[in-house]
Write a protein that binds this DNA or RNA. Structure first.
Length: 975
RNA sequence: GCGAGGGUAGCCGAGUUGGCCAAAGGCGCGGGACUUAAGAUCCCGUACUUAGUGUUUCGUGGGUUCGAAUCCCAUCCCUCGCACCA
């Protein structure tokens, strides 16, 4: 219905026929830019196109200003996303075949986004999923949006040739001493292997906000066995007064390194993933332990075991040591337990034992008394165990305790120590003494895409890339100072990010698609680590895609030579079978295209991809190949949530967002591109509101019809002042755009092109401008400026206006000083000011004007102005100086005090001005300027406008307005 | 908590080497023009006040300065990142 598609396809085809998108080495300066390729996890949504289209627009602008641009694209498919997607489809398929009307689930999501039904069968294979989406991204998104990307260079992280490159990269990392091995605790699904737990929930279906938390396991001796409690606050050990066991839970006994531990069955299972040789040897109901005495670690006091239903068998070990002084749960439960008669009656605990459990004050901190837990409870008005506010109380006490607290004198060797230090010190001491152990757990339930619960698993020989390497870090930080990094906040912050960047697990086990780790086949290189150095691979991928070089030929000797210049072409040729000339050609390509000039990615990359991207370059490649620019873009968010006021993230994995082809159909690709470019700074989140997008579409439609109008009014009339004006203005806009784009400020380009220029050209037409030559010149510049953001529209208008060739091939005008006309610009400003003032007066007075009289300033006033200008040029303009100078003039002095008053005013007004700005004010012949515009003004104001010279004999001036006239500000009388 | 950034008129959003800032632009709203008509287009207006002026405004409270949205201090609130999601 929209009909945008035909025009879009037409031009896309012509660009492609001309090969405009293809990047080949020549003698122009080059510009290479990419967006961080997206992960293949399903359909993308309109939000993703924001950053992508910035890149195309920037590339187009660079092309138009003389650069040979390389804009390659690719896709990232490493991981288990496509595996789990394929599994889901396989699972849903039989059901769906029975009843195709059902459109929920994964299949429904695919179909809603335009997946053809007949594809479904093949999408049960992970690699088919990958290839299917690569195709969708290229054809339905990027080509659909008119990107001038070099499609010949497309690559995907699962291609065999790409794998060769990654393996080379990892060998280089090892040579650079960037790989290390050590134990690691990672979230993993028992079925699918390691999974990423993060807010985007790419790998998981539940629990994206969970954190991997480290607990200290405390071993409480009871006979030959240990009751094992998990704590986040080992520093509170001195405050323990009792031990909590849930009487309703059946605990298990497990063998751990020859010891017998009692924990909840859930904890036993979790521990199984983190400790070797754990076996369950028995069970014990919780109530059986009530009334026991167990020996606390470190302080070696005997603690009584009391019942507590708040012990969740799924959290920690399901057993809890009680520190009422600093744990609100413990405080309130202890109080409750003491009043509970069943304690004696049912569990037979002697009263004196119960009474002996008295809170011990161990931590002092500002804003709290001896018992922080009690204070928090009182403040929040908590009355009994189970109150949901206890969570808040706990958070408060923990947080304040950690940052503000100090250990009291009763804490043995830790007395006086700040809590944050005591915590580590005590944990270390406990571990050393064998009285404690370490246990990792997720803070909330996490469920894998496959439906399995996710656990923390210990991996002993995990490989890491050592991004903490001080030398490489330092080198990278130094280099960043020379880079063009947008926004400025990130430029300022990136050093900090690099400092904080530590070792990073780089390989995974399990069900995972990706490149095999070159030093040990059982590992697969994980998703972030194989996507850091890849921009350089786009130089190679062209040759592997067209078959000139095969994956087998991509040996290290080849990469070493073409990327690092090591060795020589002849021996590389001998080693790989690639022709010597071709090896040389690739080497030259690399030298020409690299480094990468711009890498653009979403803000989520700031602490993940970009630092890794930088450090891999600086660790492996020579300095002259280190990246030159980074740009970070923020998101398009979903509708704001009324309750929270926050925009929900449009989630690509959850579906529901506007599919891209549908939006392109509805608003036209250029409508969307304009929306992205102009809606806000790239460095701010934007809420997706259809009406807003639509208003940009309308804006573009108006421009299209306005261009038509311009073409039709152009006539062979002589050029006048207004032509000088519009030429001057357009020339100024060219400068604004050029300056803005030097800083990649696409939004400014859009503002200038789609708003400021439009307003000026409208004014030109309104003022009667229609000189054919002028109109053509204006259109040429204007349509050029439209090309980066709305290329299809620009081509259409370019053709319609009768220009040769395609605007995508054209060169953007240079700023031309000689086209600037201060007088013309000043003159129009003056006329507009007069009209605005008149309108103001008419509005305020509510008059129905019969005529408007404009009085220009008397000649003597102009003379004062001239004097002021001269002083300004000499840099000596001030009030006494100007007054003196004027009074020295006989003619002027005749006007008496009026002269000094005016001199005072003018001097004050222009003292900080520049001669360039002031000159037109002093020199403009206002009588002829205003007279020539009188007809126009009359029409606009709706009543006759007459211009009168204040010096004229027998001047009609019933209200004495002419006295108020000043050069640059004629007096107005409205009757 | 640590790190980064931000609070501007009905809304979005420019503006921060202090002055020309009542503060761009867009949207919305009001009025007008055109029109059979219009959700289309164009023009004007949109803090309060006013013959083109003046007054009070840029989270809040202080301060520096001849002069502050722009600098300093304090304070409240908000957003983002904090690790294996590109």
């Amino acid at each position: 219905m929209s009909g945008y598609g035909d025009i879009e396809r037409k031009w896309q085809q012509r660009w492609s026929e001309k090969g405009l998108n293809e990047a080949n080495r020549d003698d122009r300066p080059k510009f290479m830019l990419i967006f961080a390729y997206p992960g293949v996890t399903g359909y993308l949504h309109v939000g993703h196109m924001r950053g992508f289209s910035y890149v195309d627009a920037i590339g187009r602008y660079k092309r138009m200003t003389g650069y040979n641009v390389m804009f390659p694209v690719g896709a990232h498919a490493t991981g288990n996303g496509s595996i789990s997607l394929a599994n889901k489809i396989r699972k849903e398929l039989p059901e769906w075949k029975k009843d195709k009307s059902k459109d929920d689930g994964t299949i429904g999501y695919l179909l809603r986004n335009g997946c053809p039904e007949e594809k479904l069968e093949s999408l049960t294979e992970p690699m088919n999923v990958v290839n299917f989406f690569c195709d969708v991204y290229v054809n339905e998104y990027w080509k659909r949006f008119g990107f001038l990307a070099d499609w010949r260079r497309f690559t995907c992280t699962l291609y065999p040739d790409y794998a060769k490159f990654i393996q080379w990269q990892f060998r280089k990392l090892r040579q650079a001493d960037m790989l290390i091995q050590k134990p690691y605790f990672a979230p993993a699904c028992p079925n699918c292997g390691p999974v990423a737990v993060d807010a985007s929930e790419t790998d998981i279906s539940k629990g994206g906000n969970a954190e991997n938390q480290e607990y200290t396991l405390l071993k409480f001796k009871h006979g030959d066995e240990y009751l094992v409690a998990a704590t986040l606050r080992p520093e509170t050990l001195y405050g323990q007064v009792c031990f909590w066991v849930n009487p309703e839970v059946e605990y298990v006994k497990i063998k751990v390194n020859g010891e017998t531990w009692i924990v909840s069955p859930q904890a036993a299972q979790k521990l199984g993933y983190q400790k070797d040789g754990i076996e369950t040897v028995g069970k014990i109901p919780g109530r059986e332990m009530i009334g026991w005495k167990c020996t606390a670690p470190m302080i070696h006091r005997d603690l009584p075991v009391f019942p507590a239903k708040f012990c969740d068998p799924d959290v920690g070990t399901g057993l809890v040591t009680s520190v009422p002084s600093d744990a609100p749960d413990d405080w309130i439960s202890l109080e409750a337990v003491k009043k509970d008669p069943t304690l004696v009656a049912e569990y037979g605990i002697p009263q004196d034992v119960i009474d002996s459990a008295v809170p011990i004050s161990i931590i002092s901190m500002e804003g709290y008394g001896d018992f922080p837990a009690k204070d928090a409870i009182d403040r929040l008005g908590i009355k009994e165990p189970g109150d949901p506010l206890l969570v808040e109380a706990k958070k408060q006490v923990y947080k304040d305790g950690y940052h503000l607290g100090r250990m009291k004198d009763n804490c043995g060797p830790y007395a006086g120590m700040p809590v944050d230090r005591a915590k580590d010190a005590m944990k270390d001491a406990l571990l050393k003494a064998g009285e404690a152990d370490v246990f990792h757990d997720l803070t909330e339930e996490v469920v894998c895409r496959c439906g399995q619960r996710v656990y923390i698993r210990r991996i002993d020989d995990q490989w890491f890339i050592n991004y903490a390497n001080p030398e490489v870090t330092e080198r990278t930080k130094e280099h960043c100072k020379t880079m063009d990094i947008q926004p400025a906040e990130y430029y300022n912050n990136v050093h900090g990010v690099l400092d904080w960047f530590r070792e990073r697990a780089c390989v995974r086990l399990g069900n995972w698609l990706g490149t095999k780790f070159p030093y040990d086949d059982k590992w697969i290189i994980e998703a972030i680590s194989d996507s850091t150095l890849y921009p350089i691979y786009y130089i190679i991928s062209k040759y592997t895609n067209d078959g000139e070089i095969t994956a087998d030929q991509l040996k290290d000797s080849f990469f070493d030579y073409v990327f690092l210049g090591k060795g020589d072409a002849a021996s590389v040729s001998a080693d790989t079978g690639i022709k010597t000339e071709l090896v040389e050609q690739v080497r030259k390509d690399v030298e020409y295209w690299y480094p990468l000039d711009l890498n653009l990615g979403g803000k989520e990359h700031m602490t993940v991809h970009f630092p890794a991207f930088l450090m891999n370059h600086t660790a492996i490649l020579p300095k002259e190949m280190w990246p030159r620019g980074i740009m970070v873009n923020w998101y398009i968010t979903g509708k704001k949530n009324a309750a929270t006021g926050k925009g929900d993230k449009i989630s690509k994995s959850k579906g529901g967002a506007q599919p891209i082809p549908g939006a392109a159909e509805k608003f036209g690709v250029d409508g969307l591109r304009l929306y992205y470019a102009h809606i806000a700074s790239p460095f701010a989140d934007v809420e997706w509101v259809e009406e807003t997008v639509y208003s940009y579409r309308q804006k573009l439609d108006r421009i299209i019809s306005f261009v038509g109008e311009l073409n039709s009014i152009a006539a062979d009339v002589p050029a006048g002042e207004i032509d000088k004006w519009i030429i001057s203005r357009m020339n100024g806009h060219v400068k604004v755009i050029r300056d803005a784009m030097d800083k990649l400020d696409l939004r400014q380009l859009a503002t200038t092109t789609y708003f400021d220029m439009v307003n000026d050209i409208r004014w030109y037409v309104r003022r009667g401008g229609k000189n054919r030559e002028t109109v053509k010149a204006v259109l040429r510049t204007w349509i050029n400026a439209m090309m980066p953001v709305t290329p299809h529209t620009a081509e259409e208008l370019w053709e319609q206006s009768g220009f040769d060739g395609m605007v995508s091939e054209a060169q953007f005008p240079e700023y031309d000083e000689s086209k600037f006309s201060a007088d013309a610009e000043y003159g129009e400003d003056l006329i507009r000011n007069i009209m605005a003032d008149s309108a103001q007066i008419i509005k305020v007075t509510g008059m129905q004007p019969s005529r408007v009289i404009l009085y220009t300033a008397s000649a003597w006033k102009r003379k004062v102005m001239d004097n002021a200008l001269e002083l300004l040029r000499e840099g000596k303009l001030d009030i006494p100086g100007l007054t003196k100078r004027c009074m020295a003039d006989e003619d002027l002095r005749r006007n008496g005090k009026a002269v000094s008053d005016l001199a005072k005013k003018i001097a004050a007004d222009y003292i900080r001005s520049t001669p360039e700005k002031m000159r037109p004010v002093a020199e403009t012949d206002e009588v002829s300027l205003l007279s020539s515009a009188a007809a126009f003004m009359s029409e606009e104001i709706g009543s006759p406008v007459e211009v009168m010279d204040s010096d004229a004999e027998g001047l009609y001036d019933p209200k004495g307005k002419s006295k108020a006239a000043v050069p640059g500000r004629p007096a107005i009388l409205i009757e």
